Simulated scan of single mutants.
Amino acid sequence: MRETWSDRQTWSVDALVRRYRCRAFGPNAFDPDMIDKVGPAETEVQKIVPGRELPGGLLPFRDPRGWHETPLYLPQQGTLVFGDGLTERAGSLRVWMSPTHEERALPDLRAMLDLPFERVIISHGEPVHDREAFQQALERPPWPASSLHIAAWRGDLEQVRKLVEGGADPTARSEPDEPYGNSDLTPLEWAVNASRLQSEPTHDDVIVYLKSVMKAKGMA
């Protein structure tokens, strides 16, 4: 559903279909900026429906992060395939952060342990991992930051309160290799940075609340 890396002028789904003379299945979530740039895709993409078997016996699941990425189970190969739901960092498999990591991503991923898969293939980092690495990933913090970081960035006071009261650590820091300019920062610092990018003071309540929490912990 994106442009190819080679020329930035061709839909990747069109390049794939031309090369392999295959049908295309996906979420039909084309980048509107790309449509404006090169026009609509040539390929008719058949919509993937989670739980509805695909040709070859592949079984799709809903995206654990709630976006447009569909994990697939390949029973003949005993393999799970992910888009951006998982990543590899410093030799460890990690779950990519999302606003509903605890409520949605982890339960969905844990449910996949009922499948008799032996390996996991991902799109970012070392591509192939085993079942044990997948299990260990579910016990690690999400990469590159927590749900509390995301809620603070969005200025979602209700979710920030809910997470803190549920035990989320307000002193936790984002990973040093966080790719968007917010490395090694607390949720409070994420909220402050986000407020600097906003024309309206939508993060003030979150900042005040997190400062009070940090003060209570002797951190501010």
Rank of each mutant, 00 (worst) to 15 (best):
1 M>W: 06
1 M>S: 12
5 W>A: 12
6 S>D: 14
9 Q>H: 13
13 V>G: 00
14 D>N: 06
15 A>D: 02
15 A>R: 06
16 L>N: 09
18 R>S: 11
21 R>E: 12
22 C>K: 10
23 R>C: 06
25 F>D: 05
26 G>C: 08
28 N>P: 02
29 A>T: 12
31 D>C: 15
31 D>R: 14
32 P>E: 01
32 P>H: 01
32 P>M: 01
34 M>K: 08
34 M>I: 14
34 M>C: 10
34 M>S: 09
39 G>E: 02
40 P>Y: 00
43 T>S: 06
46 Q>W: 10
49 V>L: 05
50 P>M: 05
51 G>L: 08
52 R>M: 10
53 E>T: 14
54 L>E: 01
54 L>P: 00
54 L>F: 01
55 P>Y: 04
56 G>N: 08
59 L>M: 15
59 L>C: 07
62 R>S: 13
62 R>C: 07
62 R>H: 13
63 D>G: 08
64 P>G: 00
67 W>E: 00
69 E>K: 12
69 E>T: 13
71 P>M: 05
74 L>E: 03
75 P>W: 07
77 Q>L: 14
81 V>M: 11
81 V>E: 01
81 V>L: 14
82 F>N: 01
84 D>N: 15
84 D>R: 14
86 L>Y: 01
88 E>I: 01
89 R>F: 04
91 G>I: 12
96 W>K: 11
96 W>M: 12
97 M>H: 14
103 E>Q: 12
107 P>T: 08
107 P>A: 08
108 D>W: 07
114 D>K: 15
114 D>T: 14
115 L>K: 13
116 P>Q: 09
118 E>P: 04
118 E>G: 15
124 H>E: 12
125 G>M: 08
125 G>D: 09
127 P>C: 06
128 V>R: 02
128 V>E: 07
129 H>A: 05
130 D>N: 15
132 E>Q: 15
134 F>Y: 15
139 E>V: 08
139 E>L: 14
141 P>D: 05
141 P>A: 06
145 A>D: 04
147 S>M: 10
147 S>I: 03
150 I>A: 03
150 I>T: 08
154 R>F: 06
154 R>T: 02
156 D>R: 05
157 L>E: 02
158 E>M: 08
158 E>A: 15
158 E>Y: 06
158 E>R: 14
159 Q>M: 12
159 Q>L: 10
162 K>T: 13
162 K>P: 04
164 V>S: 06
166 G>D: 04
172 A>M: 14
173 R>L: 14
180 Y>Q: 10
180 Y>V: 09
181 G>C: 07
181 G>N: 05
184 D>V: 12
185 L>D: 04
186 T>N: 05
187 P>D: 03
189 E>T: 03
189 E>Y: 04
196 R>V: 08
196 R>C: 09
197 L>N: 11
209 Y>C: 08
209 Y>T: 07
212 S>C: 04
212 S>L: 09
213 V>R: 01
214 M>W: 03
217 K>V: 05
